[in-house]
Design a binder for these strands. Structure first.
Lengths: 185, 185
DNA sequence: GGCACTTTTGCAACTAGTTGCATAAGGTTC
DNA sequence: GAACCTTATGCAACTAGTTGCAAAAGTGCC
C-alpha cells in the first residue's frame, strides 16, 4: 500500500498530471519506489474515486493533460500513513540468491554478472553524491531539508553497501578486481 | 523468476517435501527471498510439470508427505540462471518513502515507528552474527563455505546499514536515542 | 489537407505474491 | 470411537506490479 502514498507525497510537493508524475518518479521518489506510468494512472483513478485527490477543472478528453491536486482527506490519509506500523520488508535480491545457488552448482559466469552490478551501483552512488552536493549544501538546514537529506543518505548508504559487498563477492568467486574493474577473465 | 531457482537450490542441498521447504525458507534462504507455503506448493507443481524436479515414488495421497528431488534438467536450469543477466532491483522500502512524506506532512508518530524498526534490525543483525559464529569458524574455508559466508555477510552488511541509517533518521526526526533505544518522548 | 511524430491518457492481459480456507491423514486422549 | 490436535497438501480469490498496445489530441512539414 505504498504507491498511493508515494503519489500523494509527490502531488503535495507539486500538483501534476500523470505523465509528469511518471517522469518525476524516474528521478526522485522512484529511487526508492519505482512505478510505471500505467500504475500511476490506475492509482490516480483510484485516489480520485476515493476522494483523496481531484482533477483540476480542465479538459477531460483523452489526449489532454489532466492535473491533480491533493484534497484535505488525502493529506490526512498521508499523515496517518506516516505513523502507521509496518514490518520491514525482507531483502529479496536475486543476486544474493544466485550467489547461494553458485555454492551448489558452481560459479560459472557469475563473476561477469557481479562486475556488471558493481558498475551499476557505483554509477548510482556517484549520482546520489552529485545530488547531495547540488541540493544539500551545509548551509541549507530547515527541518524539511534535513528529512529529505536523510532519505538521500539512505540511498547513499545502500549503494555504498552494495559496492563493498559486491567487491567482497567478486573475491569469493575467485576474481579479485581493480578499482575500474574491467579485466576480463 | 527467482522463486523456482531458490527452490531448486534448496532441493539440491537436500531433497524435501513442500512443508519442509517452507520451514527451511523461514530460517535460511527466506532471509533473502521469503515465500509462503502456498507459493512453494504452486511452484513445486510447476517445476514438476516442467520436468525439472520429480516426486520421489511414495504416497501420492492428500495428507501425505511428498518428497521432491532435482533432475539433471533442473540442475542445468539453475546453473544457467546463475550466470544470467538481471537488473538490480530498486530498493522499494516504505520507510524511506514515509520519511520523505514526513518532510511534507510532518513527522508525527514517525519516531516511534523508526525505533521499532531499529529494534527489529538490531535483532536480525544479532541473529546473523550468531549464525556466522556458529557456522563459519575461521578454519572452515572450502569454496562452498566461502560463497555461503559471503551471502551471510551480505545480510550482516544490510542490517548494519539499516541500524546506522535508522539511528541517523531518528536524530533527524528530532529524537536522539540511546543504545537501548527505549526512552519514550 | 495529409502525413509523420510527440504527448498524454488509458485498456487489457499477464505474472508474482498474499490471504483465507478446505481437505486428508495420523496421533492423542478420554 | 469421538473429539481434538498436528502435519501436510492444496484450491480460490485477491492485490500489486509489469508489458504490450491503442487511441485522442497537438505539432511540424511540405
Amino acid at each position: 500500500m505504498s504507491l498511493p502514498h508515494a503519489i500523494l507525497t509527490a502531488l503535495l510537493e507539486k500538483p501534476s498530471s500523470g505523465l509528469e508524475l511518471a517522469r518525476r518518479f524516474d528521478k526522485s521518489i522512484g529511487y526508492f519506489w519505482s512505478a510505471t506510468h500505467q500504475q500511476i494512472y490506475r492509482e490516480l483513478g483510484r485516489l480520485e474515486k476515493a476522494g483523496l485527490i481531484r482533477a483540476l477543472p480542465a479538459a477531460p478528453a483523452r489526449g489532454q493533460k489532466k492535473e491533480y491536486e491533493v484534497l484535505p482527506d488525502g493529506r490526512a490519509a498521508l499523515s496517518a500513513w506516516v505513523a502507521e506500523a509496518g514490518a520491514p520488508r525482507p531483502v529479496r535480491d536475486p543476486l544474493l540468491l544466485r550467489m547461494r545457488a553458485a555454492a551448489v552448482v558452481g560459479t560459472a559466469g557469475l563473476a561477469e554478472e557481479i562486475r556488471r552490478h558493481l558498475d551499476l551501483h557505483r554509477r548510482q552512488l556517484a549520482e546520489y553524491r552529485a545530488i547531495e552536493e547540488r541540493d544539500f549544501p551545509p548551509e541549507r538546514d530547515s527541518a524539511e531539508d534535513r528529512l529529505r537529506h536523510v532519505v538521500l543518505r539512505g540511498g547513499i548508504g545502500l549503494e555504498t553497501f552494495w559496492t563493498e559487498w559486491l567487491t567482497e563477492a567478486l573475491t569469493a568467486v575467485g576474481e579479485p578486481v581493480g578499482e575500474q574493474g574491467n579485466g576480463r577473465a
